[in-house]
């Protein structure tokens, strides 16, 4: 009986975890991921620092838009200068578009001069599932208290075409500035755009 109850509880809990979506203003779900150099990163170790999560797929044209123009790298560099942790996460499953070995990922980082703190490989889709990451790029901003303060698109130009980056309103930069200034984040949620995450 005891064993039965415990099993039932375990099932209930696991179902709950699977259902709980990340909520704005709530603690961001904790995870541990391994980067392209084999180092492990636990989100909760970065309490006290602002963290940006960027879902990526090296072959997605929308990711390409932000990397080929240098827009993403510029954001990453500016974030690094402010002591912000920037984790790029690739949730493509093995055999799907955007899946890379650590070596291939490092080549990509080098070729594109990516400036993120680390690139986490999540081929099981576990972290992607935890955050319900839908697109590449799908961005999340977590404040130093560990609360999720922004979730959605990188900017308000959801089109692949156009030279949009200059005129576009960048939601991630706006959120980071608000945190820096101790202000509440104004736009907390937008529709993410891009390719679907290839789980």
């Amino acid at each position: 009986m005891k064993i039965f109850l415990m099993t039932a509880m375990a099932i209930i809990l696991s179902v709950n975890i699977a259902i709980a979506a990340p909520q704005i203003g709530q603690p961001a779900p904790d995870f541990t991921g391994t980067d392209t150099f084999g180092m492990s990163h636990r989100l909760s170790d970065y309490i006290g620092k602002t963290v940006v999560l960027e879902w990526t797929n090296t072959e997605c044209p929308y990711v390409g838009k932000h990397y080929s123009t240098g827009n993403m790298q510029a954001m990453q560099k500016a974030a690094a200068a402010k002591g912000i942790i920037w984790l790029t996460i690739a949730s493509s499953a093995e055999g799907k578009q955007g899946y890379t070995t650590p070596e291939q990922a490092n080549e990509y980082i080098k070729a594109n001069n990516a400036q993120a703190t680390a690139r986490i490989l999540d081929p099981s889709g576990e972290i992607g599932g935890l955050y319900e990451a839908k697109t590449t790029p799908h961005m999340f901003v977590i404040n130093p208290e560990g609360l999720l303060v922004y979730e959605g698109a990188i900017d308000d130009d959801p089109k692949f075409k156009k030279d949009g980056m200059r005129g576009a309103r960048n939601y991630v930069i706006a959120a980071l500035r608000a945190i820096d200034a101790g202000q509440p984040v104004e736009v907390t949620q937008t529709q993410p755009y891009g390719c679907s995450v290839k789980y």
Binding site: E59, C60, P61, Q97, K159, F160, K161, C195, K198
Partner: peptide, 14 residues
């Protein structure tokens, strides 16, 4: 005309 077309992978076409 500009559109995105997908089948697992996505390709922008115009």
């Amino acid at each position: 005309a500009f559109w995105l077309i997908c089948k697992e992978i996505c390709i922008p076409e115009m």
